[in-house]
Design a protein around this nucleic acid. Structure first.
Lengths: 154, 154
DNA sequence: ATTGAAAATCATCAGTA
DNA sequence: TACTGATGATTTTCAAT
């Protein structure tokens, strides 16, 4: 799908604040409200905009402890990978999971309340999954940058 | 801030779809529209909801290549850390950056078009920052799970 | 804290250039 | 593709409880 400068500008704004009204956007871009409206609808239809979400501050809901957990499977048959991926997807503490290159097979971003809840998560959930080999936990000391906005105008 | 079951339910829904109307929420939760409205305003005021954003599909905007980049600084004086953090925050390819425990000091989530753009990023931007020691790049082979929704009802 | 209803604002859709 | 104008929906405010 072809995106022109106006599309990119719309995306850039909506990635920062999706409550921005079409009227506000139309002023910023010097377009009519309907033109903005049609472009946004097209971006949604084409899947460029996948969804609209509210971002919750984890600290405010007692989930201030973030951990990157790297995982090695004991074997790499297709069925092992698939099974692991299905199971890990169901874990609500796991916000993100990627199959990666390198020494480990997967990287998980895990969000919990504190170290105790992480221990609990490891013992009762993660290490209970089939085919798990070794794991390596890396704890977040501080958040330097965290945005959901994909870099568009570059 | 105290959050009751209704607050958590509202958050759970808005984390999945922030376009949901107050009327829809009021039906789901058996509340009046105004009650829902006031609760959401309170969640925004208190910073529980930090922002509303449109999520863009990276592949559709030619940013289909994600890399976790771990970084070790050559020294750990406060001024070195601060300087690095300021500079890395300005890099648009870097969506996330965390100060972490373990062998490396920082983990970056980097989003670019392809390996060539990543090479370019490393050579012209990252390794140009002051005080960078060694780096370790871990490439994403596939996305297993990726949500922005913080686990609330558990 | 919640309600119901009014007022203001907005999204949406025809018709048209 | 984009625009104007009309309509219905939604958000927001407010008096009352």
């Amino acid at each position: 799908m072809k995106l022109d400068k106006l599309d990119l500008k719309i995306l850039k704004h909506l990635q920062e604040d999706s409550k921005m009204t079409n009227k506000e956007l139309s002023n910023l871009l010097d377009l009519s409200v309907t033109a903005v409206y049609e472009r946004i609808k097209r971006l949604e239809r084409e899947g460029v905009i996948s969804k609209y979400v509210a971002l919750v501050n984890p600290e405010k809901v007692d989930k201030g402890f973030m951990v990157f957990c790297q995982i090695k499977l004991i074997q790499h048959t297709k069925s092992y990978l698939t099974k692991f991926e299905e199971e890990v997807t169901r874990l609500s503490e796991v916000l993100e999971c990627y199959h990666v290159s390198g020494e480990y097979d997967y990287i998980l971003k895990v969000l919990v309340k504190d170290m105790e809840e992480y221990r609990e998560f490891m013992v009762t959930k993660l290490t209970n999954l089939d085919h798990i080999g070794s794991t390596l936990s890396t704890f977040i000391i501080s958040k330097v940058k965290n945005t959901s906005a994909v870099n568009l105008l570059s």
